Simulated assay, not measured.
Amino acid sequence: MMDMDADAFESLVVDELDQLPDEMVDGLDNVVFVVEDRPEDGSLDLLGLYDGLALTERGRYGMGELPDRIIVYREPHLDRCADLAELRDEVHTTLVHEIAHFYGIDDDRLHELGWA
């Protein structure tokens, strides 16, 4: 397991988010990115989570809605990665995967595209 404190990991996530193509992030509406240590169940299996209403389902989405969240879990990433380069790559993949869920792309399609 890699060792990286929460602040350093959050900075890495922000760096990777900044490197994503503008076309991918410009359409994000009412979404916040959050870094947490682990999922609620305490497992190390889940790297990220999209918690919200996909863009394709927002016909009933209205003003005053709480922001959707894209959560990146620190400890599962550190458990899975052997070095910084691998960690950056995995965080990048997690961000793309969870942003895709915002756009309404499901896991089956993400597997087809190589992002799952």
Score class of each variant (00 low, 15 high):
Ala54Val: 03
Trp115Ala: 13
Leu84Tyr: 07
Val91Lys: 01
Glu16Asn: 10
Asp89His: 14
Glu75Lys: 03
Leu53Asn: 12
Trp115Pro: 03
Leu44Asn: 08
Thr56Ser: 10
Glu16Ser: 05
Pro39Asn: 07
Ala6Trp: 10
Arg60Phe: 14
Glu86Gln: 13
Arg69Lys: 12
Pro76Val: 12
Leu87Pro: 02
Val34Gly: 01
Asp79Gln: 12
Leu46Trp: 04
Leu46Asn: 01
Glu86His: 11
Glu112Ser: 14
Pro76Gln: 03
Met4His: 10
His111Gly: 14
Gly64Phe: 15
Arg38Lys: 14
Asp108Ser: 13
Val72Thr: 11
Glu36Thr: 08
Asp18Lys: 09
Glu23Ile: 04
Leu84Phe: 06
Val14Arg: 12
Ala116His: 07
Phe9Gln: 04
Val13His: 00
Glu98Met: 06
Ala100Met: 05
Asp106Pro: 01
Arg60Lys: 15
Glu75Gly: 01
Leu55Ala: 07
Asp107Val: 13
Asp18Trp: 06
His77Tyr: 05
Gly48Arg: 02
Gly48Phe: 01
Asp107Ala: 10
Met2Phe: 08
Gly27Thr: 02
Asp51Trp: 05
Leu47Trp: 02
Met24Glu: 10
Arg69Pro: 01
Gln19Thr: 11
Phe9Met: 06
Val13Met: 00
Asp37Thr: 12
Ile99Ala: 09
Leu113Asp: 09
Ile99Asn: 02
Met4Gly: 07
Gly114Trp: 02
Leu17Tyr: 13
Leu110Gly: 11
Glu86Phe: 05
Asn30Thr: 05
Gly48Ala: 04
Tyr73Glu: 01
Gly27Asn: 11
Pro76Glu: 03
Met4Glu: 12
Arg58Val: 03
Glu16Gln: 11
Ala54Phe: 00
Val72Lys: 01
Gly64Asp: 14
Gly114Cys: 08
His101Arg: 07
Asn30Pro: 07
